[in-house]
């Protein structure tokens, strides 16, 4: 792996509440390299989703910095944040969050249309990705006509359609049974290999986490474990 970091998180702190203070993140330091496939694990309320929202530029930290390709995303204007989310990030959530009024193809095209890509071109890219996730025959189906696993595949295609450098998954298989969950995991793994994009998955599924290249464990807003293939990345 290269020495260049795609994400450098320094002393990241996020405090919620204006009466009772909750330190959801408390001085987190993490470096992530391009193409990594890593899991953030931890018990409920440990701060793992909060960390993901910070990396996803959906929330702003109370203090600390996050460099994405060397640029501090915590200092960005609202408009720059939107643009960066659109260009650099792909999101997969526990619930697929597909637009219910649109069919699978239209949903996958959406990030490209937001980016301003021409419709015909967007369609071509979206069709390729839908084929890659194994849904070429379901492109005109709406979310209500697709199974949970299929919807999640559409959501994955949508997350990848803008060719982002980082794909963020917040419990991407949390809503699926173990069989479907495995196949979604395999899909993500394959895409990670083929596209060489960085995958950051938040999960409380320890089995799945164990299959990833690197596990970052968070408890009470602090990183308590950071190991690659069982070997600590650094001293905590």
């Amino acid at each position: 792996m290269s020495d260049e970091k795609i994400i450098e998180i320094r002393n990241l702190t996020r405090v919620y509440g204006d009466g009772v203070e909750i330190r959801a993140l408390d001085g987190v330091d993490i470096d992530i390299e391009p193409g990594e496939f890593l899991a953030i694990v931890g018990p409920s309320g440990s701060g793992k989703s909060t960390l993901l929202h910070q990396i996803g530029i959906l929330d702003t930290p109370t203090s600390g910095t996050i460099l994405l390709k060397g640029v501090d995303i915590t200092k960005m204007s609202d408009r720059e944040r939107s643009k960066t989310r659109n260009r650099e990030l792909g999101f997969i959530f526990q619930y697929h969050h597909l637009l219910p009024d649109f069919n699978a193809l239209e949903n996958v095209m959406m990030p490209l249309l937001i980016k301003g890509v021409k419709r015909s071109e967007a369609k071509k890219i979206a069709l390729d990705l839908l084929e890659e996730v194994g849904l070429s025959d379901r492109i005109h189906h709406r979310t209500t006509q697709l199974s949970g696993g299929e919807n999640q595949r559409v959501a994955i295609a949508r997350a990848l359609v803008n060719n982002p450098s980082i794909v963020i998954g917040d419990e991407p298989t949390g809503n699926l049974d173990s069989k479907k969950s495995d196949s979604i995991y395999e899909l993500l793994r394959r895409l990670n290999r083929e596209h060489n994009q960085t995958f950051i998955l938040v999960t409380h599924d320890e089995q799945m986490a164990a299959k990833t290249d690197r596990v970052i464990r968070i408890v009470d807003g602090k990183v308590v474990e950071d190991s690659r293939d069982g070997v600590p990345v650094r001293e905590i």
Binding site: G56, L58, D78, R79, S82, K83, T84, R85, N86, R87, L89, F91, F93, Y95, H97, L99, P100, M110, P111, I114, K115, R158, N162
Partner: peptide
């Protein structure tokens, strides 16, 4: 609401 959140995550600016 959820859809609006997802559109924002996909990079749709508030103006949109």
């Amino acid at each position: 609401v959820g859809e609006i959140g997802m559109l924002m995550a996909m990079g749709a600016p508030r103006r949109s």
